[in-house]
């Protein structure tokens, strides 16, 4: 495992991370999904030892994230949606800064990304578009040859073309079986493209963590009338949502459900569908 989080707990006045468990194997991309305030960024901050945790164990590359913090961080690349270096710095300045922090900082690679992303070298990032700013953050995160990328909303603010470019870079990064990516995103369609695992966090708790294929192939959304719904055993579904004319029911194994009940309309869900029924639905 490249990343292991065990029984992570962190309590704030109005929010709590409860027994968060994560395991990210090498060569994999894990998508962390959940609504705003669900605990995605708090989990990422705990992994990076930015916040003090109440209990739990976090191991990165098999090392304790607190005791071996500096050693571990030499091999992690991070993109945070809302935080970066000052906007009054240009890519040249950033290179001067970063080469002091990372032993493996690769100036050539960094400027190769800067060229590829068409970022003006001498322009301060304040004058960049939001897409360009994100590309700059990604270039910085990739330029010290990290083994693990931790990305918090890396595709937000990017147009579809730029998003595709970035997703391709992430997929290239993972080709080396020694690398892994933990990525949180609201844009669940992006995760459908690249993620191997999906972890869904809601109200500070991990609701599900599955391989993407398992989630998209096994899960189903049953659409039925009220009479049909009443016949369904509670244990056979995860959540349901009552719409104006029908019921939407999230089931974990659509084939088994089909065998048990005579309901024909079972849609293949998207990650977003699953997330919405989990958040808005009832049991």
């Amino acid at each position: 495992m490249i990343l292991e989080v065990k029984n992570l707990n962190k309590k704030y006045k109005d929010f709590q991370l409860k027994n968060v468990n994560l395991s990210l194997p090498k060569g994999m991309i894990m998508g962390l999904i959940g609504e705003n305030g669900a605990g995605k960024t708090t989990t990422i901050k705990a992994i990076l030892n930015i916040i003090n945790t109440d209990s739990g164990e976090i191991k990165i590359f098999g090392l304790d994230n607190k005791k071996e913090e500096k050693k571990i961080k030499q091999d992690i690349g991070v993109v945070l949606d809302d935080s970066f270096l000052s906007e009054y710095l240009n890519p040249m300045d950033i290179n001067k800064i970063m080469k002091n922090f990372y032993q493996n900082w690769d100036e050539k690679l960094y400027f190769k990304y800067i060229e590829e992303f068409k970022l003006p070298k001498n322009k301060i990032s304040k004058d960049y578009s939001s897409g360009m700013k994100m590309k700059l953050k990604i270039a910085v995160a990739l330029s010290h040859h990290p083994k693990l990328l931790i990305l918090d909303e890396p595709t937000s603010g990017l147009d579809p073309v730029a998003r595709n470019e970035i997703l391709d870079i992430f997929q290239d990064f993972i080709q080396d079986e020694e690398h892994a990516i933990l990525v949180s995103s609201h844009i669940t369609s992006d995760l459908e493209h690249i993620a191997d695992y999906i972890t869904f966090i809601n109200n500070g708790e991990i609701v599900l963590t599955k391989t993407k294929d398992e989630l998209l192939d096994r899960y189903g959304i049953v659409k039925c009338s009220e009479q049909e719904f009443k016949k369904i055993n509670k244990a056979d579904y995860l959540k349901y949502k009552k719409n104006r004319y029908e019921y939407e029911i999230l089931v974990e194994n659509k084939n088994e459900f089909k065998r048990k009940y005579d309901i024909q309309i079972i849609d293949k869900p998207t990650i977003e569908d699953i997330m919405l029924i989990y958040i808005k639905g009832e049991k």
Binding site: K70, L80, D82, I150
Partner: peptide, 15 residues
């Protein structure tokens, strides 16, 4: 403070 740099800097090999 303007760029919320503290959070980002703490992802570097520093403390």
């Amino acid at each position: 403070e303007m760029s919320k740099a503290d959070k980002y800097l703490l992802t570097f090999p520093t403390d």
